[in-house]
Structure formats: structure tokens, C-alpha cells
């Protein structure tokens, strides 16, 4: 399985735009799974004109319960809890604060009396939807966090795990904005990272943050400069070279992109001769060469 992650740091640079269009091009030649790891605001399905996500499965996160017949009120669970989700009031049994619990299971393993019962709470849902666009089949795995949930990384982890279970040639992961923990989960053990940025101060700043991570992790990295015609791209080239970026592509600001957005039809399907589609074809071609050579 060849794993690709599309990320970029700044929101609104076009990560989902790139991921969706590349997935459709790759799916013509390889079995492809697109994974929407932006659990707080998943929207690849919107770009793909999917109105109803299918095959719902809950994302379960460990939540401790206290077996009061075994508990000795020793307080070990409260001491090891990294998020301060367990309180040991004087003389009473431990109290769990579910909203604070990150499901790390430290209390479960630390309890010397096996008094922690393994429970769970539902963090969100994973969906698996298959679509066919122009005789090309594409599988979309989407993770959705429930409203009010604070713990994103375990949800991202679970969604990726579910997607990894599917037998496929290419796993294309689309991350949310930011450079935090949930992004690094999507960067673990991948063959290629595509950083989508734009020539704006925020785009450049966040791109260099992501590049620091990918460079540190030793991941093969390409950059796509989206809306490249709206600003000065020289700084992006400079930083990309500094962090060993292998390839840089430019997607100019173009009317076709906007109208494909409005019509909910991915640009590679709607405007086959657009200059934007040409760039995507070029990127997809390079990816396929890599896949065929097993990433060498």
C-alpha cells in the first residue's frame, strides 16, 4: 500500500481540493481510498457530491469505570491521570470526569487491584462510502467528531486505523488545518507528503512549520502552491529548498476552480482541458511513477 498525506498547516489553502482531485485521477489506475482526517470539519464528501455518508461505525474511546467492590481508594489512578480526569475526594471512591478523559488507559494499567472497568464513550463516527464517477470507483473514509468533543487525536487515529483495514493500492489522507498532534498522526509511516500552501504570509508561515516536521521525520515531500498567481512565490521556493522538498507545483488562481466548487463537480471531471487539470494530471503522473517503482 502506498500512503500519501495531503496537509499544509493553514486552513483554506486547498488541501481538500487537491486531495479530492488527485484521488479521482489516481483511482483511474489504482485502487484508491481517500481518507478525510479533518474530523472537526470533514468536507471531502461535499466536494465529491456525496449527500449521504454510508456504513456508519462509532469511534469508541476508552473510558474508565470504578469497580467499587475491588477499589481500595489508594489514589494511584488519580496520580497517573495525565489529563486530571480522576478525582479522589477524601474518603470516597474516585470520580471520573468523562469530558477531560483522553482515553489513554494509564489508570487501567496502573491500578494495582484491577478495579478499573473497561468502558467507552462514543467520540464520533467513521463512514465508508463508495462512489463511482465516470466509471471510476473511489472509496471515501470520513471521520466525524461529535459536537463538543475536545479530543481530536484519538479520533484521527481511529479513522486512519479503519481506513488502513481496507485492501487498496493507494491510501490518500487529507488532514485538517494546523500542525498539532492530529497532523502528526496522519504523517506517521507515509511514503509521500504533499504540502498545499498559498503565497500569503500565513500560508508561508504554516508551510514552514509543517516542513520542519516532515523534514525531521524524513518523509519525501512535495509542495503545491495553490493560487500561485496571487502573490510572490519566491519565498516558498526558498523555504522548500531549505527543507529538501523534492518537487514544487503551481496551481494558478483560476475561474474554473471557482465554478467547479460552486457546481460541486471536481475540476478534473468538469474541466478536462483546464490548465488546472493539466497540473493535477502532472502531479498524478509523478505519483503513479512513484507507486509503480514502490516509492524508490
Amino acid at each position: 500500500m502506498f500512503r500519501i498525506t495531503v496537509t499544509g498547516g493553514k486552513g483554506g489553502t486547498g488541501k481538500s481540493f487537491v486531495a479530492v482531485n488527485l484521488a479521482l485521477l489516481l483511482a483511474k489506475h489504482f485502487r484508491t481510498v481517500l481518507v478525510d482526517l479533518d474530523l472537526e470539519a470533514p468536507n471531502d464528501h461535499i466536494l465529491l457530491s456525496i449527500d449521504k455518508l454510508e456504513n456508519e461505525e462509532p469511534i469508541k474511546l476508552f473510558l474508565p469505570f470504578i469497580n467499587t467492590s475491588k477499589c481500595t481508594k489508594c489514589g494511584v489512578c488519580a496520580k497517573v491521570c495525565d489529563t486530571g480526569a480522576i478525582l479522589l475526594p477524601g474518603g470516597a471512591y474516585p470520580i471520573i470526569f468523562p469530558r477531560l478523559c483522553s482515553g489513554c488507559k494509564a489508570c487501567y494499567y496502573a491500578c494495582p487491584y484491577n478495579a478499573i472497568i473497561e468502558g467507552y464513550h462514543v467520540l464520533g463516527y467513521v463512514y465508508r462510502t463508495s462512489i463511482i464517477i465516470e466509471n471510476t470507483e473511489l472509496t471515501l473514509v470520513t471521520g466525524v467528531l461529535r459536537e463538543g468533543e475536545e479530543h481530536v487525536p484519538p479520533g484521527v487515529n481511529y479513522t486512519r486505523k479503519k481506513a488502513e483495514e481496507i485492501e487498496t493500492d493507494i491510501l490518500l489522507m487529507d488532514t485538517g488545518a494546523g500542525t498539532g498532534n492530529q497532523i502528526s498522526i496522519a504523517l506517521k509511516n507515509v511514503d509521500l507528503t504533499i504540502i498545499v500552501t498559498e503565497p500569503t504570509p500565513l500560508g508561508i508561515h504554516d508551510m514552514s512549520n509543517v516542513l520542519k516536521i516532515t523534514n525531521e521525520m524524513g518523509i519525501r515531500t512535495w509542495t503545491i502552491i495553490n493560487k500561485s498567481s496571487i502573490g510572490d512565490t519566491s519565498k516558498i521556493y526558498e523555504i522548500s529548498n531549505k527543507y529538501n522538498v523534492e518537487k514544487i507545483y503551481e496551481i494558478p488562481y483560476h475561474r474554473d476552480v471557482v465554478s467547479s466548487y460552486v457546481e460541486r463537480k471536481p475540476i478534473v471531471v468538469k474541466y478536462k482541458n483546464s490548465p488546472i487539470t493539466r497540473v493535477f494530471n502532472e502531479v498524478a503522473q509523478s505519483i503513479m511513477e512513484l507507486v509503480r517503482s514502490n516509492g524508490k
Partner: peptide, 10 residues
Amino acid sequence: GSGAGVRAVQ
């Protein structure tokens, strides 16, 4: 990092 209130009361 988190759970300040609970830790304080603890």
C-alpha cells in the same frame, strides 16, 4: 495541561 480545576481540588 488540562484538568486544572480537578487537580487543584485534589
